[in-house]
Design a protein around this nucleic acid. Structure first.
Length: 327
DNA sequence: AACGCCTACAACCGCAGGTTA
DNA sequence: TTAACCTGCGGTTGTAGGCGT
């Protein structure tokens, strides 16, 4: 037996609500409350599904709702909580008075996700891309390394290409400034966007291959800096890549001033996953001692498609503190 | 001015779990 | 006990408006 529909689809209006409908719904709820959503549209004289009325009320008409821009503090809270509970929008919204789960979800999908990506942080795991890439690299045998770039692009292609197209100047700088590893300083970089992307993919592939095949290519204790990281074989790859790609592969520390110096990113990146030095240390530790295996003490909370390593202290607060404040 | 692209956000859909008769 | 119903949730889609070309 199939589930019955919540309403007669034929007799209900869909799409944008009119001010008249809003008035009818608001005044009805003001008088009778929100019991039994199925009856509300009928009693309020609305040709709407009860579910539609409920959504309209909870997401838009409720008098206690806050409309307008999210403040920095609110964004900060969302990112922090998301790093702990994942896409539990209702849980996150409950910590933000006047905001609905839909508000939070939309704001995350349209702004915050991209903001984190732009800072070199994977919005799903809240780890730097470099960290994830290093983990991928350590799980592959050397013969497989040729596939690594493809795998990486599968994960981060959109973000990479987005940045590549925004930061074309980096290519030109690379051509002029590299010491002959890849670029040809004598020939100006002229290419279509398509060529640029394909070329970048080739560069990444080559960079990964070289880094994996030549473990001693960089001094073992060289500190993480703006030209590349040395924590893993993978990280040496950064030295061969355009700075815009470095930004993704090597984390926030390799970004230009535009991102790295913004108050937002600085305030957001107070935790170990975002601080280059500490990040490198942890990465070293992880790579040296765990060799790519799952941390034995690392408790993973799986939640749908995302998971969070609670050993990884994010932002300023340990995950447990966040969870305790919520639960 | 027209067009296409992008962004932000409202709204819808389907599922899961709780409640009720 | 269980089917019917209600509500909440997260994912996805639709669309209006802004912007650049």
């Amino acid at each position: 037996m199939g589930r019955i529909p919540c309403c007669e689809k034929d007799n209900v209006k869909r799409g944008q609500w009119t001010p008249e409908e809003d008035n009818k719904l608001s005044s009805y709820i003001a008088q009778h409350g929100t019991r039994n959503w199925r009856l509300i549209p009928k009693n309020a004289g609305l040709q709407r599904c009860g579910k539609s009325c409920r959504l309209r009320w909870t997401n838009y008409l409720r008098p206690d709702l806050k409309h307008g821009q999210f403040s920095d503090a609110e964004e900060h809270t969302i990112v922090k909580l998301h790093s702990v509970v994942g896409n539990r929008w209702s849980l996150i919204a409950a910590q933000l008075p006047g905001r609905t789960d839909n508000d939070v979800k939309n704001h995350w999908n349209t702004k915050l996700k991209r903001k984190l990506s732009g800072m070199g942080i994977d919005p799903v795991t809240h780890k730097p891309f470099s960290h994830l890439m290093a983990e991928i690299a350590t799980t592959l045998a050397t013969p497989q390394v040729a596939n690594l770039a493809e795998a990486a692009l599968g994960c981060f292609k959109d973000e990479m290409l987005h940045l590549l197209t925004k930061k074309r100047i980096d290519f030109q700088l690379l051509q002029c400034n590299t010491n002959g590893v890849q670029g040809n300083a004598s020939s100006p970089y002229i290419a279509t966007k398509h060529d640029e992307n394909n070329d970048t993919i080739e560069r990444i592939t080559l960079g990964f291959s070289r880094a994996m095949q030549e473990p001693g290519i960089l001094p073992p204790n060289k500190t993480w800096d703006s030209t590349g990281a040395t924590s893993a074989n993978f990280a040496g790859t950064c030295a061969y890549l355009p700075s815009s790609v470095n930004a993704f592969l090597c984390g926030p520390s390799s970004f230009g001033n535009e991102v790295a110096l913004s108050p937002w990113s600085q305030s957001m990146c107070t935790g170990s996953t975002c601080t280059a030095g500490d990040q490198q240390g942890r990465l070293h530790e992880k790579l040296d001692h765990e060799n790519g295996e799952e941390s034995q003490g690392g408790k993973e909370i799986r939640n749908g498609s995302s998971f969070f390593n609670t050993d990884c202290v994010l932002w300023d607060l340990p995950s447990d503190d966040l969870m305790n404040s919520i639960v």
